[in-house]
Design a protein around this nucleic acid. Structure first.
Lengths: 144, 144
DNA sequence: GGTAATCGTAGACACAGGTAGACCATCTAC
DNA sequence: GTAGATGGTCTACCTGTGTCTACGATTACC
């Protein structure tokens, strides 16, 4: 028997539209601070701790490791991250967030969170909580 | 004061991961029926009624009108959609779903819906309802 | 009737994404 | 030590996407 939401758009279409909208809102916020989308993803991924490996960092943000290099070059050149060889295994480069990087990340995140608040302003509080809860459950981070 | 979810990933990151996952699950389902992702989007957009204009159809699925043409050629060649000049304004091509197209769409949608069910299987029913409700509210269709 | 605008189509262009291969430095196994 | 594996980097492709331009057909405006 047909469900009440049988004629709704597919999840893929809904999510696609929403991602586009979020990106449209987010890009100018980051650009105002001189940060590109993927650079911000790198900074955010490093917040919880240094990345032991660039390949692991690339996997964490869902990007190809060869494409990550340009971002790291940019960020390192601005003194926002530091690449240092792992003393235990000097093939690896440990990527860490510098104090400047952490400060910039905090500013970016505040802007992004404010944008998200505005986006979800019309959604009731409990629906919003359920939305985020579901999102966190269905889109788990790749590292675990 | 910091909110409880202050350290969560941004909406953009969460949505990006989820879209990737949905696409990974959806692509093989559609490929099994010989349909590409954007072709399916076209069929789904035509379900509610013919498109009066190809440009309007492109806007409805969030695609450039020049990129739509290849999809329409493919679908028309398989007899899934029909392009007919608008008798009122012969510059326009009215795109309609053929019976074959409607049947294929029904099959694809059933597969996709089953996939979505599996994806959300671990989510409680009320959270799932709130998730879809929020999604529909925050990602409205472009046409209105 | 003549000019401008619109629609569908095609082609060129730049750009971002992933993949693959090669290279060098380094580590591990033997 | 030597051979193989791994990590970072660079380069070269192939693909997909959006933008731009141009063109023919058609319509709308004056």
């Amino acid at each position: 028997m047909p469900q009440p939401d049988d004629r709704r758009d597919d999840l893929g279409a809904l999510l696609h539209r929403l991602v586009r909208r979020v990106l449209e809102l987010e890009t100018p916020l980051l650009a105002a601070r001189g940060v590109e989308m993927w650079d911000y993803a790198v900074l955010a991924a490093l917040e919880s701790g240094p990345a032991q490996t660039q390949a692991r960092l690339a996997a964490a943000i869902g990007r190809d490791k060869t494409r990550l290099i340009a971002s790291l070059d940019r960020l390192e050149g601005r003194g926002l991250v530091a690449r240092e060889p792992d003393p235990a295994d000097r093939r690896n480069r440990i990527v860490t967030l510098t104090p400047d990087g952490r400060a910039l990340l905090a500013g970016c995140r505040a802007d992004v969170r404010a944008m998200e608040e505005g986006l979800l302003a019309d959604v009731p509080a409990d629906d919003r909580a359920a939305f985020l809860r579901t999102l966190l459950r269905v889109a788990p981070p790749p590292a675990g």
